[in-house]
Design a protein around this nucleic acid. Structure first.
Lengths: 226, 226
DNA sequence: ATAATGGTTCGCCATGGAGCGAACCATGCC
DNA sequence: GGCATGGTTCGCTCCATGGCGAACCATTAT
């Protein structure tokens, strides 16, 4: 077997219906068990197991044992970004099944991207962060400014806890539907959490769609828009 | 055939050794003929032809007829970005063939990413653009500031011609080796051209590596660093 | 203990698709 | 015109891999 540049194995792994279904499901952010993933992919437990172990070997997924369950999640948010890139190309190549699906507008408006908010509302939030200088580009990427930290605290984000972790606070993520950036990283993740906790929004079951309540959306826009 | 989300077809297309070899070659930016690509991929002309037509159908590649030749290139710089994303994940998953290849340091230092400069030097240039406010983020992405345009003109970039085209002037592109952004878009492409024209750098044959001359690198760093 | 449930391993089948050679068009050159 | 060269089409082989069922281990529940 001639060995090619190993993007081949990665791409081939994603380029299978069942596995891709699993990965897309995990883009939702929550960890799922093997059987759940088998259902999502509509395959046998045996096949699912085989797929999953290959995905783990390739470091696309990470596992966590919990009792007799094995919880799978995306290994990394690089992987999430990769999936979004793929979705972007597929979407613009016109092949994405989503297009002309009734759910598409909702997905474009607000959805979960691994663990943070994507879609139009995600972009709005990111723009606000830039405009108000809550984040700044420096040599090492994106950093939260002093005023940004203040804002986050007001929103109930535990900035100090976040400082401990070695996961970057802020990070950009390319939004396939809007072709713009939105906010990822710890701050992005925690802000989405807060949206749930404050009752502004809720995940729609079985999808990546985030439904904002009318009041939630009003508040959100009041804070981030204009 | 159950139809999955169509990232499957895209990923599957990339997930084949021969095709992936072709795509990677085209990441070099110049259009190549079918036979050249067949050689790169080490396959028959017949198989190459089959692969190429599938890639074109999926809008990953674009063709241009010229006499009895058919020149293939990446359809879009979205595709280039996707490839870079994949390279990034493959690289960090530790599987990339490059790793521990003698050429790796050179690739990390400076390489072509489709049509613009990537690698450490690419990142240095992008950082300079940010720091000196030659580019600014606004709602619609990255724009070239007035001083940025002035600088580009000094460098011999034809900014006005670029304004005509509908391809974005500036665009970020994620650098898989540096995990940071570098500059893409028309300005990125033209600046790389100028590096060649001014004799600062040269493509290393058959690779994506850009070799700077000692003088070229000195000049480059003098302008963009610090 | 025994049963139930979550996952994995193994052996087998089926098929998609990658690869080739040969014949075949298309274009350019002499 | 005739010949070389670039690409495509067609028919064929062959192998990698996805899929399943059944048996099996592991963990929790009763």
């Amino acid at each position: 077997m001639k060995d090619g540049p190993n993007i081949v194995t990665i791409a081939a792994l994603i380029g299978d219906r069942a596995r891709s279904e699993m990965l897309t499901a995990l883009l939702g952010g929550q960890a799922l068990t093997a059987t759940e993933l088998a259902e999502v992919a509509e395959v046998n437990k045996a096949t699912a197991s085989a797929h999953l172990s290959r995905l783990v070997d390739a470091k696309l997924l990470a596992v966590e044992k919990q009792g007799r369950h094995r919880y799978f999640r995306l290994a990394d948010d690089d992987v999430a970004q990769l999936m979004e890139s793929l979705l972007g190309v597929a979407y613009r190549a016109g092949a994405l099944r989503l297009r002309s699906s009734p759910r598409e507008p909702d997905l474009r408006k607000a959805r979960v991207c691994y663990d943070h908010l994507a879609g139009d509302l995600g972009v709005i939030m990111f723009d606000a962060f830039k405009k108000r200088r809550w984040i700044a580009h420096d040599e090492s990427g994106l950093t939260l400014s002093r005023s940004g930290a203040r804002f986050c605290r007001e929103m109930g984000v535990d900035v100090d806890a976040a400082t401990q972790s070695r996961r970057p606070m802020c990070r950009t993520c390319l939004d396939w539907s809007a072709r713009r950036h939105h906010l990822a990283g710890q701050v992005g993740a925690q802000l989405l959490q807060r949206c749930y906790e404050m009752g502004w929004a809720k995940r729609r079951r079985g999808t990546r769609i985030v439904d904002f309540t009318p009041r939630g959306e009003r508040e959100f826009r009041r804070i981030f828009e204009g």
